[in-house]
Amino acid sequence: MTKKNHDADVAFIQALAELLRENDLTELQVKRDYGADDSLNVRVSRHTQQQVVTQVAAPPAPNSATPASPAAAPAPAASSEDPADDPGAVTSPMVGTVYMQAEPGADPFISVGASVAEGDTLLIVEAMKTMNHIPAPRAGTVKRIIVEDGAAVEFGTPLVILE
């Protein structure tokens, strides 16, 4: 009977991997309970290499223009405009949904040009029904807010840029 469960579990995991791929998901977690002392907890995830490929593929697009010399100059500017490369970028520590205020209708935590102290809440990332306050890593001024309220973010996604 253990072999039968094992074969069924393998087929189940393969089906989860296929769901992940077909629906363009990055992670899927399922727990199956077979009995009091028998369960299967599966977490299938994939690296978001597509995002990395997209970011790497974006700068060469201007270089593929017909005139080679003028296109070579904007390439460094395009990579310096990537928010993730900015030294003041505050990135998401988790996968979740961004909220700019404590509750609907409330004032947002930050706005462009606002001064923040180290530890001030910049925004909230909800993950698995838990509201995680994202603190300012240092004091500074909000130069740019990259994400929108209610947007889904991945681990490492730039959220805010501080000066």
Rank of each mutant, 00 (worst) to 15 (best):
T2Y: 13
K3C: 02
H6M: 12
H6D: 15
D7Q: 15
A8C: 06
D9C: 12
D9P: 05
F12A: 03
I13M: 14
Q14F: 09
Q14T: 07
A15S: 14
A17L: 08
L19D: 13
L19Y: 08
L20D: 04
L20V: 03
E22Y: 08
N23C: 03
L25M: 12
T26H: 14
Q29D: 13
K31R: 12
G35S: 08
A36G: 01
D37I: 03
V44S: 09
T48E: 14
T48N: 15
Q50G: 07
Q51D: 07
V53E: 15
Q55Y: 15
V56Q: 11
V56T: 06
P60G: 04
N63T: 00
P67L: 14
P67M: 14
S69G: 05
A73M: 06
A73C: 02
A73E: 07
P74H: 11
P74F: 06
A75V: 03
P76M: 11
P76G: 07
E81P: 01
E81I: 01
E81R: 14
P83M: 06
D86V: 01
G88A: 05
V90T: 02
T91E: 04
T91M: 05
M94I: 00
T97N: 05
Y99R: 11
Y99V: 00
M100L: 10
Q101G: 01
E103S: 05
E103M: 05
I110N: 01
V112R: 12
G113D: 09
A114T: 04
S115M: 06
L123G: 00
I124T: 01
V125L: 03
M128P: 00
N132D: 02
I134E: 02
A136F: 04
P137Y: 09
R138L: 00
G140N: 10
G140I: 01
T141R: 15
T141C: 04
K143W: 09
R144Y: 07
R144Q: 13
I145E: 06
I145W: 10
